[in-house]
């Protein structure tokens, strides 16, 4: 399958979102299409979106930044978090720089940064000033 093949309208919509500055939403949409008929093409867009978002995540959360938990106990448990996010939360100590957290997690660095950004967005984790 090549780039010349016509992508689905959803794929086009995802690309429009990128132009509107909604690259994260675009990636989520593209990921949901991964099982579709344009498998290889979708994977290609996924790769490009991941590479592009990685840079955004790094700008938002620099390598040297330090994070700590904002919520504990039942407040924390009320969230519907994936295991990867739970693992990252368990590693937060307010001292380890983000770049080390990502390396130590052993996770795909993109997934680790994405989870950390989401945790900050959800108010579960905060930057140590």
């Amino acid at each position: 399958m090549s780039a010349a093949e016509v992508p689905s309208h959803l794929l086009m919509e995802a690309l429009d979102w990128v132009q509107q500055g909604r690259a994260e939403d675009a990636l989520e949409l593209v990921e949901s299409l991964a099982e579709g008929r344009n498998g290889a093409q979708v994977a290609g867009y996924e790769e490009l979106l991941r590479a592009r978002l990685m840079e955004e995540y790094r700008e938002r959360l620099p390598d040297a930044a330090r994070l700590r938990r904002k919520l504990e106990g039942s407040e924390l448990l009320s969230f519907n978090l994936p295991a990867g996010a739970g693992f990252l939360i368990s590693m937060l100590d307010g001292e380890t720089p983000v770049s080390d957290l990502v390396a130590l997690s052993g996770m795909d660095p993109f997934d680790a940064r994405r989870n950390l950004n989401r945790l900050i967005g959800a108010g579960i984790v905060e930057l140590v000033s």
Binding site: F79, L81, G86
Partner: peptide, 14 residues
């Protein structure tokens, strides 16, 4: 206690 140790379609497991 290990919260969010796993997750499945029903949500997180602790």
């Amino acid at each position: 206690n290990l919260p969010f140790i796993a997750s499945d379609p029903d949500g997180p497991r602790h």
